[in-house]
Amino acid sequence: MKYLMIHALDEDATPRTGSNGEPLELAAWIEEMEARGVVLDGARLHPVSDATSVRAPNGTVVVTDGPFAETKEQVAGYDVIDCPDLDSAIAVAAAHPTTGAGSIELRPFDEGMPDPEVPESVPDGKRRYLMLVCADMRRAMAAELDATEVHADSVPERSSADDEEEDEPIDRWIADAGARRLYGWPLAFPDTAVTVRRVDGEVVTTDGPFAETKEQIAGYDLLECTDLDDALEVASSHPVAATGVIELRPLRL
């Protein structure tokens, strides 16, 4: 199963466990997990002060400074991992140095995600952005629950993801984004999230996302664009921009 590891750190805080070899720890984690074929993609992000959010209610594009939600800990990076089950994913997350300083949220991807293929080097004149697609998922979850109760016999796995009609808005968006989108996939609902922290050296696993917010991360796409305006054009035409919010974060390369 594929999981998204969302690294959440309080940018103003000092690490909880100040073990002296943290860069080494990180290098060791990457080396081990890549050797085991666990990590498929991942990157660190520029600080949250470099974040830009965009909404497009009624087709009017509104660009604002800052992240999709003001939280104590902020998204600082991500990794895509492939593990046999949740327990092994938790073990992979617990071994990451982020748990000593902040939190790691683990979220399964929706089924059917192909292995991401992200070229190591970025072409001249291009930059990469993580595009977080955020929406109020409680409504979507409630709608799915209703559907489950009504059609208890023939429950569709997931109402939205399975309808792969040619002219779905999301397919049109993917076609329009073209080469500016490297890959992307929806995440399972936030109620599937598990958050891993280390408290006094002990690994603590809690149910739910790293922060309670009105809108939650529903999926992401990795973009490769010429500049922020180029990325904003892609983001603002995403179907979720009409009802939710899209955050753009430049990758630290």
Binding site: H46, D227, D229
Partner: peptide, 17 residues
């Protein structure tokens, strides 16, 4: 300093839109 860092890091273009 933060504003200039954002112009650079986020890739805010230097252009007439």
């Amino acid at each position: 300093v933060r504003a200039r860092a954002k112009v650079k890091n986020a890739g805010i273009p230097y252009r007439v839109p």
